[in-house]
Amino acid sequence: MATPGATEAPAKVPAVEIRGLVKDFAIGLRGVKLRAVDHLDLTVEAGQVFGLLGPNGSGKSTTVKLLLGLLEPTAGQCRVFGVSSLRVEARREVGYLPEAPYFYRHLSGRELVHFYARLCGESGTGLGKRIADVIALVGLAEAADRRVGTYSKGMLQRIGLAQALVHDPRLLILDEPTAGVDPVGSAEMAALIGRLKAQGKTILITSHLLGQIEDICDRVAILDRGRLMVEGAVADLVNRAGRQSLVVEEMPPGELAALRAWMEARGRKLLAVEPAGRRLEQVFLEQVGRGKGEGETRP
C-alpha cells in the first residue's frame, strides 16, 4: 500500500504534524456546531517530550483523539511519522495511555498487557519476556497476576503505560497521565517519562496541571478554546531574559544593606528580597522519603 510521505527519510519526518486542524461537534437535534479545535498547527519533532497544556475543555483530548484516528477532522489533517492519522497504519508506532484508564477488570495485569501486545501483532517466544520487562519497568511486577479490577488508580495508570509500551512504539501519547494520582505516583511517572525519553521515545503529554509538566517537557503548547495560544521551549517560556535569582542563607539587615551597596557600586540593581519558597509537592516527597529516583522501587 502506498503511503504518502512514507518515502521521506525517517529522521526528518516529525513524530506529529498537525496542519489547519478543525473539529466541530454537532450539538442537539438542530445540529448546532461546537468548535472543539480551531485551526491548530503543531509539530512535535522525534525524540521530544512535548506538553499539550490547557484548561479543561481547551481541546487537548479532542486533538489526541484526532491524532489517534478515533475522531475524523472537520478540516485539516494530522500525520504521525508522516502517515495520515486516518489510516490504521499510523497507529502502529503509537502507544496511548487514555485519561483515567479503565481496563477489562476480569483480566490480570499480565493478561491485559498480553492482550494488547497480541492486538499490536506482537507474538513469538520473546513476547513473554517483553511483557515481563514492561511490567517491571512500570513497577508492577509483584501485582502482575492480580486482577485489574483490584488495582488502585495509580496502578491502573501504570498498567496503562505498560500496555502502551508493550509493542515498543516510537511515539507515546499520555492523556493526563497524572490526573487523580498522588504526588508519589506523579513523581514516579515523571521519572519513568525521563527514562523513556532517554531511550529515544517521542512523548506527547496532555495536562492541565502546568506545574507537573514544566519539569518534564522540552516544549509545550498551550491551548484555549481549541486555539493555540503559545508554543515554544519550556525554558524560553518560563525564564525572563536578563534576570537571575540567587538563594542564600538568611542575612541580617545590616549585611543586606552592605550587599545592596556593593552591587550598586558595580552598576547592578537588587530587584527583590523575599523568603526562598519551596513547592509543596517537594515537601511532601521529602517527608514520605520518595524523592526523585526512588519512585520505581515502590512495591
Binding site: 483523539k65 489517534l68 484516528g69 478515533l70 490504521v88 497504519e89 497507529r91 502502529r92 503509537v94 496511548y96 487514555p98 484508564p101 479503565y102 481496563f103 477489562y104 494488547y116 492486538l119 499490536c120 501483532g121 496503562g160 500496555q163
Partner: peptide, 14 residues
C-alpha cells in the same frame, strides 16, 4: 462507556 474501546481502537486495529 468504559472507554476500553478507546484503548483498543488506538491500536492498529480495524
Amino acid at each position: 462507556e468504559n472507554r476500553t474501546a478507546l484503548t483498543l481502537l488506538a491500536k492498529p486495529v480495524w
